[in-house]
Design a protein around this nucleic acid. Sequence first.
DNA 1: ATGGTCGGGCTCCGA
Length: 258
Amino acid sequence: MPLKIATWNVNSARARVEHLGAWLRAFAPDVALLQELKCQDAEFPRLEIESLGYQVETHGQKTYNGVAILAKTGIAVVRRGLPGDDADTQARYIEADVAGLRVASIYLPNGNPAPGPKFDYKLAWMARLSAHAKSLSALERPVILGGDYNVCPTDEDLWDFKAMAGDALVSPEARAAFRGLLHQGWTDALRHRHPTARLYTYWDYFRDRFTHDHGLRIDHLLLSPEAADRLGDAGVDRSPRTREKPSDHTPAWCELRV
DNA sequence: ATGGTCGGGCTCCGA
């Protein structure tokens, strides 16, 4: 059986605990990377998740951000927080060794409005991620950088590029930084497996976007060469987005041969 | 046609 690794921005762990539990039961990922917990570590619904057979490691903060790694096997946390700026207190990165892999759960800054200080923070964060990703590449191990990148890589990754013109999610600078990761040798698992398909992972709550499938692909699983060697299937699980009171994101996943 | 809807935690911010 291959390893199943998924990433999901849950938009509040506490608001989504029932959805999260149902999805863990139904999809049964070996490793789940979560973003936007919107709670401190002590407020994360740990017992509910542990009762489903998952270990839990979180890097949370009050109200905003927050990332987690869930796994059916032991998790050895390597770092909480992205290196490169000791003054950055936003909880957007956690990295661990799990199931023979190095994994990170990433919640990249949204960056709107652009231009402005939030956009500058996004680009600075991406530069730090690029530097750190390079050091992870040097491990020459299977590594997965999964999460909400808040970057829609190309115009094939959204329903209508005109509707998003000027948005930080499609900005040339953010797209160039994302391509820079690919040039380092990281493989975009979903796009590699589905070269031309329209694949979305996020639909805005506004304007009933999901009903019309007006979505964006902004949640990604980037694989080191050693992980990409083992890539099996990959895709999007749209089922959580169809439920009542859903997250605005839905899980993206890939399989790695053992 | 710059609206609209969420979640958190308190009257507005971030997405």
